[in-house]
Nucleic acid binder design. Structure first.
Lengths: 252, 252
DNA sequence: CAGCGGCAAAGTGCATGCAATTGAGGCGGC
DNA sequence: GCCGCCTCAATTGCATGCACTTTGCCGCTG
């Protein structure tokens, strides 16, 4: 919450950083659905800056994979394919296993308290909107990562967690509720106990269950983006062959 | 080489992309040492574009961790701390284990051929400059990652591999030569054989050996940046205590 | 009535200009 | 002689302007 001294890398220039954070949050809370348009000047107007800055922010977000930038076209909130969603979760699992491995048995009392407080907040938000509880669940993982004191790891876990958040809004059922608060508590307990293998397994199954519960199936129709639906049909020249076969049949 | 249709995410606008790629390459080949200044207008002039574009490119590179951006100051090539270097390698190990796990036994003949060709190129470059062989070794890993067809994984592996490259130039001995070409060949062989566990272990030990061979020690003096040398002494108040002890001794 | 060509609005790509901040060198005071 | 201050060149922060591209609409034609 405190105005962290120096984020050190990009988006430090604040004007850009503010927009990035706002957009990120809007995206993961699904205020901006995948495919939503993000014209530079509307953004600039909304945030009281020029297009230059809005553009820069979009660039950063695109680098994180939350936004898609196509030349001469309006930027849109990314619409990851189902496969990309699954890939993101796979990467996330490995990364977060690394996090808990580094953290097992090394948490200070203050850190444990912070984690518990966060999970309490998650519990409290149970009744509220789905978007908020998803965000809180995601932030739990980021909080965990930030305790490793490894800026790189924090960055990657954050990014991939945001991406997963984004995909959840695309492919998950209306709500999967109960986003594993009890599992979060179990992870904290295992971390305190310091059992590396146990906590790695816990994290693995936690994320894996979220992934499989959420990414229900190749999602035949849920991708609201035409491009997405068409993707499998654009396979190199496989389409060609089918077309030819169809023609042959017709000619017969 | 071909003007790839659509890199799909950021840096697609080409002018920006060209600068990014050039800078990246210059950095990993150590033409630009860590700490080297990157003023926007020199860059713009050099590449025949305006500051706006150069600035945007620097933003992207900063997001990748290759460049450090400080408000109102000239951008510089990043100077990762020793700890960050180690963290990067740890992440890289996990990510690349994932790569080979996904690839084991699934490579097409063409892919195997491409890999072999690349390793041959590495072999051929043995006599040449260190920078080139380091770059080739890095590109082998990126080539491998690109075969997973997971854009996210490719991006992360690339980024972290570049970062590792960067740290090698900071902390490794003059040259560790023999960057494990034989190990690369062994990995290919194991991939073809399809032995997941074997190839994961191989990749792990390969990267780990590179890391430990390169990151020789907390590198007492090699960090040419004053800030870096001073970093360990800025530890909270630990420094204070030492100073007090020193004073006490002197006072005696 | 379907298809096609062109026109205008919207939006991005990029350069340039001006204000603000920083770092360095010179100058005066101690 | 050394230290602090002040001024100025260098450099970034940001907004605006112009050119080009895309898109959606409208009327024309067959």
């Amino acid at each position: 919450m405190a105005p962290r001294a120096a984020p050190k890398s990009a988006e430090s220039s604040d004007k850009v950083g503010v927009i990035c954070r706002a957009l990120r949050r809007a995206i993961i809370e699904q205020a901006l659905e995948p495919g939503a348009k993000l014209p530079e000047d509307s953004l600039g107007e909304r945030f009281g800056v020029s297009r230059t800055i809005a553009r820069h922010a979009l660039g950063q977000l695109a680098a994180e994979g939350l936004v898609e930038l196509r030349r001469n076209r309006i930027a849109v909130v990314a619409t990851p394919s189902w496969q990309e969603a699954r890939d993101a979760f796979d990467i996330r699992i490995e990364l977060e296993r690394l996090v808990v491995r580094q953290l097992a048995g090394k948490l200070t009392k203050a850190q444990v308290a912070a984690l518990n407080a966060h999970v309490d907040a998650e519990d409290a938000a149970r009744g509220g909107s789905d978007a908020v509880s998803i965000r809180l669940a995601t932030e739990f993982h980021i909080l965990l990562a930030s305790m490793t004191n490894s800026p790189i790891l924090v960055r990657y876990v954050s990014e991939v967690a945001y991406r997963c958040c984004l995909t959840l809004s695309l492919y998950s059922r209306p709500h999967s509720s109960e986003c594993g608060v009890t599992e979060h508590r179990a992870i904290i307990a295992a971390l305190v106990k310091g059992d590396e293998a146990k906590v790695m397994g816990l994290m693995h199954s936690h994320l894996d269950s979220v992934a499989t519960r959420a990414l229900v199936a190749p999602a035949p129709q849920r991708g609201r983006d035409l491009l997405d639906i068409l993707a499998p049909y654009a396979e190199d020249d496989g389409g060609e062959r089918v077309v030819k076969m169809a023609k042959a049949v017709r000619a017969r």
